[in-house]
Design a binder for these strands. Structure first.
Lengths: 204, 204
DNA sequence: GAGAACAGGTTGACAGTGTCAAGATGTGTC
DNA sequence: GACACATCTTGACACTGTCAACCTGTTCTC
């Protein structure tokens, strides 16, 4: 009555399972994921998840999709009110890394093609949507700064840069400790990063 | 007599196990790794690996270490005969991505902190060595182009950029297909990438 | 050279895992 | 009230990592 879903025995088991999965992966990484442990944390039997997601790949795919949906929301919020494409690119770069850091469990499976069904329609829609958002910004940058810009190459490089940063971010402090060096704040790195990318895209 | 190792029952089981592990991870990703499957491929019983590596983390750590050793070799070969630090950075960027693409099994565990013992001395030596190599090039770039360059931030960004590219490289074609776009050759992307980074590092 | 010490590898057991089939229980419909 | 169905449980199976015990060949010592 109150919600959209009929609220059967559990209430909203799919959501609870996704949350437990993200929590578990955030703790132990994708290899530490266990379907039975997730079921345990959600308070149901070990075979319950299968009725909603088929197998473990289905559940992980659902979590990855949720992550991309969240990324799209973060992108939309980040560019709100910004008209300058350069500012929008910078804002999206920060939104990407922020999402990765704030949702480590989701981020851990979003680009893990070996363990998810990356041809599932909902996943394709969400992930392609995020890429197209970036591509759109690149097109605006091309129109504003450099008509000869290869926007697809530029988008790939930008995605790689922020993705690499988001991936290595958790281990940066550890490296700094071992090499007796220091790490710049993540926020500053992204500013420098996007600044350099923009200069590179503009000057051609 | 002939080799360094005495060549017991198997010959050189540790090497065979590392090779089988890299092969398996290249096929199925880190989550598809199985100690028993590795033992099977090496033609030994399921408990044999434990005598050389303790547990599965030990074996994976050994593979990751081997990957960083290989990366250091690739770095050394890449910069051979090059005096210009800018050329050396470009060469190392290509060497990094080439190593990742040519040794996907190793690359899959090199930065997977959750499944390896990243404080094991041999691993630390090999991984820190690679980072210090990059840091050394950055110091040369600073001396040659821009005395105010923050070489640690620059090294972190460069590593992130090529790491992101290496990570996403296998999936780029898939994305291009879904979005009906095209992908530039990996080699060209690295050239553009390092070119932009250098411009950014120099102009400040 | 005989026997001890030991590295290298096997076998068997245990708890934990993913998945499947079957059954139980609640929910809605006619 | 009876049927259909979605939701979840129970039990089973083969597989996994790890541990202890055992076997076998090599090397060292006296």
């Amino acid at each position: 009555m109150s919600g959209e879903t009929p609220a059967y025995h559990h209430g909203d088991l799919p959501t609870a399972l996704r949350a437990a999965t993200a929590e578990l992966i955030a703790e132990r990484g994708p290899t530490g994921f266990s379907l039975r442990e997730v079921a345990r944390r959600a308070g149901v039997s070990h075979a319950a998840p299968a009725h909603h997601f088929g197998d473990s790949r289905g559940l992980l795919t659902s979590v990855a999709t949720e992550g991309f949906v969240q990324l799209n929301i973060a992108f939309a919020e980040a560019v709100e009110g910004l008209t300058d494409p350069v500012e929008r690119l910078n804002a999206c770069g920060k939104a990407y890394v922020s999402t990765a850091v704030n949702y480590p469990g989701h981020f851990g499976v979003m680009c893990a093609d070996e363990i998810i069904n990356n041809d599932e329609p909902e996943f394709v829609e969400a992930s392609v949507g995020a890429y197209l958002h970036l591509l759109g910004i690149m097109a605006d940058i091309r129109d504003a700064l450099n008509p000869e810009l290869d926007i697809e190459a530029a988008a790939t490089m930008t995605w790689s840069a922020v993705h690499g940063l988001a991936t290595l971010a958790p281990g940066l402090d550890s490296v700094a400790e071992k090499t007796d060096t220091k790490t710049a704040p993540l926020h500053d790195l992204i500013d420098q990063f996007t600044g350099m990318m923009i200069s590179g895209f503009a000057a051609r």
